[in-house]
Write a protein that binds this DNA or RNA. Structure first.
Lengths: 215, 215
DNA sequence: ATACTAGGCGAACGATCGTTCGTATACTAG
DNA sequence: CTAGTATACGAACGATCGTTCGCCTAGTAT
């Protein structure tokens, strides 16, 4: 069975539905993601969605997985072009800010929106969101550890990763709430300054350079 | 009419309901805050809540106002005992971390939870949450500006306020999602280091000192 | 051709949502 | 006492929720 037309058709439908689902969930949260509105947004029927994903929880888990793929494709994959260490960290941070600023999801960063939605609950959905963020935090920290080991910077990787991720998420949330793009420039400047203070060579921080000079 | 027993009775009821409402909203969000569950949690009836607050939007606005009072009483008011400038900033940050860590609301910081809920929407509820956070950000920044003017530290108040608030919010969200108190210690350490790097006297940062020495 | 599986949809299920109505109970104002 | 106002509740409203059922089509397997 090299190919199963039925599965292929189902996968295509899932893809279409999940595209709407990730976007809707970034605005309404994983709890506010309703099958009815999703059916309307994706052009299929409630019952189709229910059978494609078995249950709402199945839909939520698939939505998280789909968002994770987009997150990786937009942020992590492109950064792999940079050598490990500070250069890759700078690329990661730049990509992450751009992914939020460009509104890849209508509601900004998918995981910022959904983490707040599930962080006080329990169950597989929360676990899936948590796993995605643990991976992300761990990857940033690992790259910083590499930079420290290579002598590029001098810092505690855990604390520095915490600081940089905090700046990234603050930019996302404040930009959304205030409807203002300035927080991204603010965050980039703070990230750059923080890495410079840790001893990073300025040339390795090009992705975090401000596009326009401060007035 | 020095006192109106009817209004007094209503106000008492509103107080009780709002106590449950702020806690429920910190977990479920302002959208997930349902009148039915709130009625059950607060011991009154759906119709009573509807008449006390006119509509769900009225309830949401009253809930934000109630949470704002608690936020101010827990964080801003106690910090006023400290002199303006770095000492007050340190007190603000310490109080803010404690308010999250002590789970004054079951879902952690009320405004972190609800900001994520409303930041992609529009209307009076979003405006109320935004106004509360603008006030908070502005207060922190004003205290930092005072510290700069007094020569206590050397920094851009806007950027530094952004950094410190980001650390505070990251501690809240990560602690909730990971069910771990360590992010608070991490954030406090980063705040302290950041203020020290800006030239703040160590004695003024006592509230941010780690309770236990690092191993 | 037959049996089986995966989608896909309309219709309906019970549950819960926010809201409204009618009615009863305090309390005030005149 | 009377008229008016602010709670308070039960009951019901229409709408939407997640889910299930029946029925049909598309594709696979034997």
């Amino acid at each position: 069975m090299a190919q199963d037309g039925r599965r292929a058709r189902g996968d295509a439908s899932r893809r279409i539905v999940l595209h709407s689902a990730t976007d809707l969930a970034s605005v309404e949260g994983l709890d506010g993601l309703s099958i009815g509105r999703l059916a309307e947004a994706s052009g299929s029927s409630k019952s189709s969605i229910a059978t494609l994903f078995q249950s709402k929880e199945g839909l939520q888990l698939a939505t998280v997985a789909a968002a994770r793929e987009i997150f990786t494709a937009r942020i992590v994959e492109p950064a792999r072009e940079q050598p490990r260490g500070v250069r890759r960290v700078a690329a990661l941070l730049h990509n992450s800010l751009a992914y939020s600023k460009d509104r890849v999801f209508t509601g900004g960063c998918f995981f910022a929106a959904t983490a707040a939605d599930v962080d006080s609950k329990s169950g597989p959905v929360r676990d899936a969101v948590r796993a995605a963020l643990i991976d992300w935090y761990g990857y940033v920290e690992a790259q910083l550890r590499h930079a420290v080991d290579a002598g590029e910077i001098e810092a505690d990787p855990e604390v520095l990763a915490f600081e940089l991720v905090a700046l990234n998420e603050e930019a996302n949330s404040r930009s959304l709430l205030m409807d203002d793009a300035r927080p991204y420039a603010l965050a980039a400047a703070a990230m750059r300054a923080r890495l410079l203070a840790a001893g990073a060579p300025a040339a390795s921080l090009a992705p975090l350079a401000s596009p326009e000079p401060p007035p």
